[in-house]
């Protein structure tokens, strides 16, 4: 693996994007302004949400012992483990991209692959705040039926994903949270 010292694509694109938007603004193109407005809205969300999520994850990392995760939602945790991760996911809020760091942390601490994917499934389909919204706008019947159908569907997806990841020798990426080797590329997407 070669150590690359490149500027991340995100920053480069950000500069390019800013320039494009500025040019659009000067030339009075309305699309540019709409982009800036939605950028502002999302930026606010991200500036507030994302740091909170990461700080909470950091705290969970230091406070909850690996042994606890392994015992309760690890490989042999069975139905109880699955119910636990679903409950954990249900009582969280925010968009799905906020769940990936938590899923990653769970895996790092010894949660089974199946339960990691169950967590992601429940997070996207069964979040309690979302269900309240859904029921309010589309009716309880719709919300309950949709959630009820989604549960077995994402369970099957989690089963397939767990088997696929294991069978293909793939593993959840290592994002090292420790100091020291920060110059090395820390993401390993495929191994063996």
């Amino acid at each position: 693996m070669k150590a690359r010292k490149q500027v991340p694509a995100g920053y480069v694109l950000f500069i390019v994007w800013t320039v494009v938007v500025l040019i659009a603004e000067v030339m009075n193109v309305t699309i540019g302004r709409a982009m800036v407005i939605s950028f502002h809205g999302l930026l606010l969300e991200m500036v507030v949400l994302v740091p909170c999520i990461f700080i909470l994850i950091g705290l969970i990392d230091v406070w909850i012992p690996d042994q606890w995760i392994e015992n309760h939602v690890g490989e042999d945790s069975g139905l109880r483990g699955a119910v636990l991760v679903i409950l954990l996911a249900m009582f969280q809020g925010g968009p799905l991209y906020g769940a990936f760091p938590t899923a990653h942390l769970l895996r790092k601490k010894g949660c089974s692959l199946f339960n990691v994917f169950m967590y992601l499934g429940a997070f996207s389909a069964l979040k309690a705040p979302m269900l309240l919204f859904e029921a309010g706008f589309l009716g309880w019947r719709f919300a309950i039926v949709r959630a009820g159908v989604a549960l077995p569907v994402f369970t099957v997806i989690a089963l397939i994903m767990a088997r696929y990841s294991r069978g293909a020798g793939l593993r959840i990426s290592d994002i090292d949270t420790n100091a020291g080797d920060s110059d090395k590329p820390s993401i390993v997407s495929a191994s063996t």
Binding site: M46, I55, L56
Partner: peptide, 21 residues
């Protein structure tokens, strides 16, 4: 814990910016 979280955030910031764009 806070430093751990901040470090993870720092590493993934480019991806979040990409998403934002």
């Amino acid at each position: 814990g806070v430093i751990t979280g901040a470090r993870m955030l720092y590493k993934l910031l480019p991806q979040f910016i990409l998403l934002l764009i």
